[in-house]
């Protein structure tokens, strides 16, 4: 049971990451592979504040969001000038830069040593240190982010995002300065990723740089491509499937250590098979 709760918490964190990345990749058609950077910014904000100051969890989440907004504003201002392959390459560049800041700004992040002893959240006098309570908390965040995202994609703003994905030059001719729209959705998405980071840091109580690599960004990308681009439910489904995948591997008879090692191979295989046979993912509405 405890283990199921653990999986469910991871699921809700990855569902948040998937939903938020889907806004950029699925709805706007911008292949960003720097999502883990903002996930990391949220995680470090919470980790540092909770271990080194008296600041509470909620405030650390808010500060994480603010930092992610600032960082994504700067990064997005550059990236939004690009489209297509250039966008993907540019975001790759930024993911490397942010990772090396995490790694080398040791006075702040302790680099590869990581930050230990992050406390479990306490909110409005309620203690979320039991895993079950934490699950409720992370599900609440997931639900909030789901509804905010739903509002975004169903708004006129969301429709413009899709038009940018379909033909950016064409929508510009109808009066939209697309740079602002691309920047705005990138910043919104980063803010949500930071929330997932705060949850992760506070749940695991230990973070180091190894969680916020390019590999992690690609894992989140796999979630949304598997679940389906431009479909919020798809991202939830994708997160569920990929979190359960190691368990499924174990269930069909792989030994535990092999199941864990197999995971990355299977993620890679899933991406390749999807591109070959089902580029729109399980319930997606759009092919990359």
């Amino acid at each position: 049971m405890e283990y199921l709760i653990h999986l469910a918490i991871l699921f809700s964190i990855y569902a948040i990451l998937g939903i938020s990345l889907n806004l950029v990749v699925g709805y706007t058609g911008l292949l960003s592979i720097t999502h883990a950077a903002f996930y990391g910014i949220g995680a470090y904000a919470t980790a540092i504040l909770l271990t080194q100051s008296g600041v509470g969890f909620l405030l650390s989440v808010i500060l994480g969001i603010i930092l992610a907004v600032l960082a994504s504003f700067l990064i997005g201002a550059v990236l939004s000038k690009f489209d297509g392959d250039y966008y993907a390459l540019g975001s790759f560049g930024f993911s490397v830069i942010v990772f090396s800041v995490f790694l080398n700004w040791q006075s702040l992040t302790r680099g590869p040593l990581g930050i230990l002893g992050i406390s479990k959240p306490e909110l409005f006098g309620i203690d979320f240190s039991s895993n079950f309570a934490f699950l409720i908390l992370s599900l609440l965040f997931l639900i909030a982010i789901y509804f905010v995202s739903k509002f975004i994609v169903n708004s006129s703003f969301g429709r413009v995002l899709k038009a940018i994905r379909e033909d950016e030059k064409a929508i510009q001719v109808f009066g939209y300065n697309t740079l602002y729209f691309k920047l705005a959705v990138f910043v919104m998405s980063a803010a949500m990723a930071a929330v997932a980071g705060s949850l992760f840091a506070s749940y695991i109580t230990f973070i180091d740089t190894s969680t916020f690599t390019l590999m992690e960004s690609i894992f989140i990308l796999t979630i949304i491509i598997l679940g389906g681009l431009a479909n919020l439910h798809g991202s939830i489904l994708g997160a569920l499937f990929l979190i359960l995948l190691p368990e499924i591997l174990r269930f069909v008879g792989f030994p535990t250590d092999i199941a864990v090692q197999m995971r990355q191979v299977v993620y890679g295989l899933i991406l390749i098979l999807l591109m070959l046979y089902r580029p729109q993912g399980l319930i997606g509405e759009y092919k990359l």
């Binding site: 429709r159 413009v160 899709k162 038009a163 994905r165 033909d167 064409a170 929508i171 509405e285």
Partner: peptide
């Protein structure tokens, strides 16, 4: 040049809304 993977209606609505 249309917005291919959008509905006919959305292809019109998208040029009507706030900029």
């Amino acid at each position: 040049r249309l917005f291919e993977q959008m509905t006919v209606l959305d292809n019109i609505l998208v040029v009507l809304t706030e900029r």
